[in-house]
Every structure is written in C-alpha cells, then in structure tokens.
C-alpha cells in the first residue's frame, strides 16, 4: 500500500505537546523493537526509526536503479541475438528487469520517497547502482555469462531479502526471485550450447566467463571488515547473511555448475576450506570496485547518458498521456 501519513511539525510546541511527542516516539520505538525481536514485519505506516527509513530508501532505490540500468547491457544485444527464439527470450528478460525496477520503486515509495525524485537522483548522478552494469557486454556469450553469473549472484543476494523486515521490500523480492530463476537458467543454457559448439564458440563462452567472474563476485559488496553498514542492517533484519558468507556460498555453487558447462573459473585459488567448511576464492581487486562505484568504470557515463536520453525521449508520451487524462476527466465532470 503506497499510502502514508505525513505529519508536519508545528514551529513551536508547548511543553505538553513535546511530552506527547516524546511519549509517541518511545511507544513507537518499543513497538519497533518488539517487531525486530519477534522477527516480524514492519509495514509502511508503522512507526520506524528515521535511520531505518533512510537506510531502506537508499537500499531499495539503489536496487531499483540497478534493475533499470541493468536493462542496457542486454538490450544492446536484442537486435543481434542469433535466432528469433533467443531474441524473444532476451526481450522478455529485459522487460522483466523493467518490471523489477518498478516493483522496487513502488516499495521505496511506501516510505515516502516519490519515484520521480529517485529517478531524478539517478539521472543527476547522485544515486548509486550496482557496479556490475558499468561493464560492457562484448559478445553474445556475455548474455550467457550475465544470466548465469550476474543473475546468479543477484539471486544468491536476493533470496534472503525475501525475509527482509520491511514488508513491501520482502514482497517485491519474492516476485523478483521467482522471475530471476528463468534469467539464470537461460544464461546457463546459452553458455552450455556455446561450450558444446565449435572450438571458437567454446572459447567465446570461456572468455565471457573470465570477464564476468570477478565483477560478479564483487556484486556481494566489500569484504565484511570493510562493510560499515552491514552490522546495522543485520540488526534490523534487513540483511540476513554477511557479504562474505553469501559470496563464499555463491563460489561453491559456481564450482559445481561450471563442470557441467565444461568450462573453468578464472581463479586458481578457489578451494573448500575443510576447517571452516566454506568455499574460498582468490583476491579481488577492490580498488577497481571502488573506482567503478565512484563513476570511473568502463561504461558509467554511457549508461547514465542513455538513461537521460530515454527519459527525455519519453517526455512527450508522458505529457500526452497526462493531457488526455485531464481532458477525459473534464469531459466526465461536464457531462
């Protein structure tokens, strides 16, 4: 539900009003704490700490932006898909990404942040989105690697988010996760067909896997000792597992699946640690991660430019639809 109550604060409060406000805060905090302790859900109109609201708006809107920007590397290949079937599949997938963006913007809106504002922040370069989408998709095999590894990493990240303490976010993630599994399987299938094709095709698949491996692992975010917000997010039941836990789990899944593909992962240091019972991987270039996040990746400028262009090109459509709706409403009220 997108409705919410906004309370304006009068300029001057009487002592009684101040006391009343403090009591309201204390009761709200107590209720919120109880919900957290019971691992229950917070809904949009419930009292919540200002920092909880702010964190969620930031996380959900960044997530939405990632879906919207994520349409670009793949949309780029729709016209060059190798068959009509692949073209139809890719179009459905890109359409899903748009849908995921909209589910998530809706969830963020229930916290009081208007969608237009979020979109404007993205276009102004004020908002962040997943660094992965600032890498170029060079060949058709990249469609496979993106589906298998990038969507695979996204799923590993998103499945626990279905249990996020904020109701609308969790519900949006349930919907997203159901749809993502098609994305991952279609990517796997692209790679499988290439890896069992001609030697050139197999090489193309291997090179795509090599290109996307490290960026996909970095999608889980910085290592735990360098992830300042994680602890609070876990205390608020938004995040359920640490970045490294999810990343290690993902590496283990990749290791099994890559055998079926008859390809290899470009990491000699992957091993299963018998003591910790966890998968480990080789070092990742976190300087590169931070550079890309700061806007200095291979495609950042291009991605934002394309987003602004699409928004501007759609202006007349939005204006026409609004004008038509106004005209119809006037006719209706005149009749």
């Amino acid at each position: 539900m997108a409705t919410q109550t906004l309370q304006s604060v009068p300029a001057e409060l009487t002592p009684e009003q101040l006391e009343e406000a403090a009591r309201h805060e204390a009761e709200g905090q107590a209720y919120f704490d109880r919900v957290m302790a019971e691992d229950s859900r917070i809904e949009p109109r419930d009292w919540m700490p200002a920092a909880y609201r702010k964190t969620l708006i930031r996380q959900i809107s960044q997530h939405a932006h990632s879906e919207i920007i994520g349409m670009q590397p793949e949309a780029n290949w729709i016209s060059r898909a190798p068959s009509l079937k692949r073209k139809a599949i890719l179009m459905a997938k890109v359409q899903d990404e748009a849908g995921h963006g909209l589910y998530l913007y809706s969830a963020a809106e229930t916290l009081g942040q208007p969608r237009d504002q979020m979109m404007q922040d993205l276009m102004d370069g004020k908002a962040k989105y997943s660094s992965i989408f600032n890498y170029p998709a060079r060949t058709w095999a990249d469609m496979g690697a993106i589906g298998w590894m990038v969507d695979g990493a996204a799923i590993a990240n998103q499945v626990p988010l279905c249990r996020a303490s904020f109701g609308p976010y969790g519900r949006a993630m349930v919907r997203v996760c159901k749809e993502e599994s098609f994305h991952q399987r279609q990517g796997f299938e692209i790679l499988l067909e290439l890896s069992h094709g001609t030697p050139e095709q197999k090489q193309m698949a291997q090179e795509a896997v090599n290109r996307w491996y490290a960026p996909a692992l970095m999608m889980f975010g910085p290592p735990d000792d360098d992830s300042p917000n994680s602890k609070q997010s876990m205390a608020w039941n938004i995040k359920r597992f640490s970045n490294d836990e999810l990343r290690n789990r993902f590496v283990g899944m990749m290791m099994e699946q890559v055998k079926v593909l008859d390809l290899t992962l470009p990491d000699k240091d992957i091993r299963f640690n018998e003591e910790t019972k966890k998968w480990e991987h080789g070092p990742l270039d976190w300087d590169e991660f931070h550079e890309v996040l700061k806007g200095r990746g291979p495609c950042n400028a291009q991605r934002l430019e394309r987003r602004r262009e699409a928004h501007e090109n759609g202006t007349w459509v939005r204006e026409a639809a609004a004008a038509y709706a106004r005209k119809q409403a006037e006719k209706e009220s005149a009749a």
């Binding site: 539900m1 997108a2 459905a92 359409q95 899903d96 849908g99 909209l102 589910y103 809706s106 809106e109 969608r115 519900r171 949006a172 919907r175 749809e179 639809a321 609004a322 038509y324 709706a325 119809q328 409403a329």
Partner: peptide, 25 residues
C-alpha cells in the same frame, strides 16, 4: 488480492500498466 502499486495517468492506462507489470506470466 493486492499485488502492488503503479503510476498511471488514468484508469485505462492503470489497467494496461497493471497487466504488463503484474501478469506477465
């Protein structure tokens, strides 16, 4: 059952957007 929300200029567009957004499968 409540599925979610969306933006639309009028009821007809809201229905079409809802179809595209919430019933793709």
């Amino acid at each position: 059952v409540h599925a979610g929300s969306l933006h639309a200029p009028d009821a007809a567009m809201a229905l079409r957007n809802a179809r595209d957004l919430y019933t793709r499968r």
